[in-house]
Design a protein around this nucleic acid. Structure first.
Length: 670
DNA sequence: CTAGGGTTAG
């Protein structure tokens, strides 16, 4: 007995497999190997030192391995993520127990939880259910929290939350880890509201204190719901409890602020963080990139490198989003270089972000070349290409790529379909629209609300307002975007009254708040139908009741609206009132109106401003020329013509196209 | 001896 005490401390001292092997041979030489105490200790030490092979050899040489020996070898394989071997060994253990004469080698709670983890990782849900059946037979194993945790994890990932909840409910006094697993489970399976309500019940009704890990899951749920209140609550709670040192928790909070667009909150938190890691930096960079602060994102990216942090693929994706948003292909190329250097250029998320960046910067060739070289393309990469062509005005190419995607056996998803609908609406072929709609119905994507909105736009642009209305009326829980699309649809068709009625219906029958796009659609509808008084009222409502700051686009629509009915002075006044200098669209709208109403005086003002902003835009010269001509000022008109010639400007020819007997991909045919 | 958590592409 005393020899055990003497040798035991030596196991603890082992730092690598070699020193364990030394002990091993000592034990062999002295005939101690038949003592299962030493065998277990040896195996555990091998595993601790990551010497799985030696441990397995010892295991093979041991005639009747104890549960502990089984467990240590299982743990070894599970820690190395060799799940197949883990599960295989577990099954071997199950069958060997029936043979062993002693009969006391049965999997215990430890064994079971490892086996369940393996099932989760291997998506072996049926095997997992079988093991669950085994668990139910033993009270001791069934009431083990670790087993419960592994079961919940299994069902969260592969069964469903109902099964997970059943497991949870079997525990009379579940601990905070089990509760957290449920919160996380709801969150990860897309039921963020359920996650929050489960959490609230646990804290309020059952008086259980959450720990930092619980809060991380709660914050993730809040981020998913874009609920900033959740963030504020946890933030306050965190400060009171002194949890602010937990990096994961702060990072998830940072992400919540990022997702909800609370850039200032995110920035303040980031600045105050006592320690930051790659994830903190990446999250903050993505926050800037996704919230219209591209240059801040790129600055931070460089600052991160200066601070000695290594960007990973996630960081790079955020930086690329910033380049895409800023249409900055120069920075984009630099970051591309970094991705190549670090060897993650062809991680699919990175290559996709690169394709998107090149597309947004109108570098089509780079985008396509890179796309071709992506080894494992998925729907998202294809969608980046499809969307890219559409954004660059190449709708037919975009649809062609979609066909190629279908031929490569990649199933489209809802987002891809929206990109395709947008591309198709540029073409305006109603037959194509009907085919796409047919496909959406059979694939079930038409239930997604953002697909509905795109479909309304598609039908409107293809000239079938009736189909657009049918889609609109068929949507049960319409959001602001759907309403805005319908209003815009009426606007395109010159149905200003209907657009206004729809807007009123939105205000009166829903609790939704019209946003800037909604207003843009109504105003544009008013403009197209010459409803000046109504348009002015709506504009007033937007500014004073809804407190929406008009953007340049709103102003240009208003200028267009006033200009169409000849209120050119009023239009000019509105431009003067603008908080920021008017852009080309605003002046362009005014110039167009001046052409319509033969107003040379204001027309010259508009043209002067336009040519200052964009001196090489031939269309503006042409408009001004026409104004002079209409007014009989042939001298001025001729002067402009000469100027155009001197500058070597050419007018882009307009064109239109029709489809002749072009077959759609059979996949889309109805 | 064992369980739950944070950043990513269209």
């Amino acid at each position: 007995m005393r020899i055990r005490g003497l040798i035991s401390p030596l196991f603890e001292a082992c730092k690598d497999g070699k020193s364990v092997a030394q002990l091993h041979s000592y034990i062999l030489k002295n005939g101690l190997i038949h003592d299962s105490f030493f065998v277990t200790k040896l195996s555990a030490s091998y595993i601790k030192c990551f010497s799985l092979k030696r441990a397995h050899k010892l295991f093979d040489e041991t005639p009747r391995p104890s549960v502990y020996l089984w467990n240590s070898i299982l743990r070894g394989y599970s820690r190395e993520k060799q799940w197949k071997t883990t599960l295989h060994l577990f099954l071997q253990m199950l069958s060997s127990t029936t043979i062993t004469a002693t009969g006391d080698v049965k999997p215990d709670n430890f064994t079971i939880s490892i086996a369940l983890m393996a099932c989760t990782e291997l998506s072996a849900i049926e095997m997992g259910r079988a093991i669950h059946g085994l668990v139910k037979k033993s009270k001791k194993i069934g009431s083990d929290m670790f087993v419960g945790s592994a079961l919940i994890e299994l069902y969260v990932k592969h069964g469903g939350m109902d099964d997970a909840l059943q497991v949870f409910d079997e525990f009379p006094q579940p601990d905070v880890v089990l509760r957290t697993s449920m919160v996380t489970g709801y969150q990860q399976s897309g039921h963020a509201e359920m996650a929050i309500s489960f959490f609230s019940r646990m804290v309020v009704m059952e008086g259980v204190s959450p720990d930092p890990v619980t809060l991380v899951s709660v914050v993730s749920a809040g981020a998913q719901m874009l609920n900033i209140e959740v963030g504020r609550c946890v933030h306050g709670f965190m400060i009171r409890m002194g949890f602010n040192v937990h990096l994961c928790l702060v990072n998830s909070l940072l992400n919540l602020y990022a997702k909800t667009g609370s850039v200032n909150n995110a920035r303040n938190l980031f600045m105050k963080m006592p320690q930051k890691d790659v994830i903190s930096w990446s999250t903050m960079i993505a926050c800037y990139a996704q919230n219209g602060k591209a240059s801040d994102a790129l600055d931070l990216f460089n600052e991160m490198i200066e601070n000695g942090f290594e960007p990973n693929s996630v960081t790079v994706v955020g930086a690329l989003q910033a380049c895409a948003a800023a249409c900055d292909s120069k920075e984009g190329r630099k970051i591309h270089e970094i991705a190549i250097q670090k060897g993650f250029e062809f991680e699919v998320s990175v290559s996709t972000a690169l394709v998107d960046m090149y597309m947004k910067c109108s570098c089509l060739k780079e985008a396509v070349d890179l796309f071709k070289r992506i080894p494992k393309k998925d729907v998202v990469s294809w969608a980046a290409l499809i969307g890219g062509f559409a954004q660059n005005g190449l709708a037919n190419e975009s649809i062609g790529i979609f066909h190629t995607m279908l031929c490569s056996e990649t199933r489209p998803d809802a987002v891809t379909m929206v990109k395709l609908l947008t591309a198709s609406s540029e073409i305006g072929n109603l037959h194509q629209a009907l085919c796409l709609h047919g496909f959406l119905v059979t694939s079930g994507f038409d239930h997604k609300i953002f697909v509905g909105a795109a479909l309304i736009e598609l039908y409107s642009k293809c000239g079938s307002i009736d189909d657009a209305i049918r889609v609109f009326e068929g949507i049960n829980d319409r959001d602001v975007i759907v309403w805005s699309s319908m209003i815009a649809g009426y606007g395109i068709h010159g149905l200003g009254r209907e657009a206004l009625e729809t807007f009123d219906r939105l205000i009166e029958t829903t609790f939704l708040r019209p946003n800037r796009v909604t207003f843009l659609s109504v105003l544009s509808a008013c403009s197209h139908s010459g409803l000046v008084g109504e348009g002015i009222k709506i504009f007033d409502k937007m500014v004073h009741e809804c407190r929406i700051n008009p953007s340049l686009e709103h102003y240009s629509v208003m200028v267009d609206l006033l200009g169409r009915t000849g209120e050119l002075e009023k239009a000019l006044q509105l431009i003067d009132q603008m908080p920021e200098p008017a852009g080309p669209h605003v002046w362009g709208a005014l110039l167009g109106a001046c052409r319509l109403h033969h107003n040379v005086k204001i027309g010259e003002i508009a043209a002067k401003n336009l040519l200052r902003l964009d001196p090489d835009h031939v269309g503006y010269y042409a408009l001004l020329c026409n104004i002079y001509a209409a007014d009989g000022k042939w001298h001025n008109a001729a002067a402009i013509r000469t100027l155009i010639k001197e500058k070597g400007l050419k007018k882009m020819p307009g064109y239109s196209s029709i489809d002749i007997g072009k077959e759609l991909h059979p996949f889309l045919a109805v």
